[in-house]
Nucleic acid binder design. Sequence first.
DNA 1: ATGACTAAGCGTCTTAGA
Length: 278
Amino acid sequence: MRIATWNVNSIRTRKGRVIDFLQNHDIDVLAMQEIKCKTEQFPFEEFEEAGYEVIAHGLNQWNGVAFASRLPIEDAVEGFENMPGFGKPAEDGTLPLEARALGATIEGVRLWSLYVPNGRELAHPHYTYKLEWLKALREDTAARRESHPEEPIALMGDFNIAPLDIDIWDPEFFVGKTHTSQPERDAFNAFLEDGMLDVTRELGIEGYTYWDYQQLRFPRNEGMRIDFVLGNPEFFELVSAAEIARDERKGDGPSDHVPVIVELDTETSLDDDMPMIF
DNA sequence: ATGACTAAGCGTCTTAGA
């Protein structure tokens, strides 16, 4: 089974490129972030024609997460336990929940498509929201591992954190900004301390996953590594290969992020590769 | 070439991205 995660930065603008990517890279499951549309605005038909079932969770023009899959999708859930909200409080004082998390089980693997809040500025309420959001995600993941001890789990998506200085072209540029602050890095590392594994890092894969549209960032290779697949040991055991699809930043109309691909040796793919011996 | 930001809304500017 080949799975991938990609911040597509508007699925309506990018649908052609995304479907081409699925076909060219033989992807079974794609976790998407920043679909930038309401659920009903998702271009479901194009994906169905290409052989993919889609579940989407979008509330407005911001954020939005989805899965496209050639394999059956089970137990889909929007958001996670105690996920904080952001924005204008409702009458009862609660903050509106955003479309940043979608969970689903495929081939017995629990997958999440996650778009971690940006944070905006260190002094902005969005930054506090980012840290609280990650804390709640960590707790939800720990609880799931407790209740489903054998289950492979992967947190896939745009974490909006560059965990190491090598994950950005110029650490100095980010002093006083979000994405590299110690509290954000601590929040990311907390998942690793809990035993989650950063799949591309563990496999020694180098490179950025994001380049700003401005300032010739891509031609100059001034990027950031902020998109990750974090798997529990049960998931990592299945991993046979991974790749950052850097070429997806090239050409006409790219997203500012590129896909991260992970290949798994699940029973289905083993069966496919297994010689027929009786 | 990978080339000087992009996307969506009710919109000709604002918000958000990072």
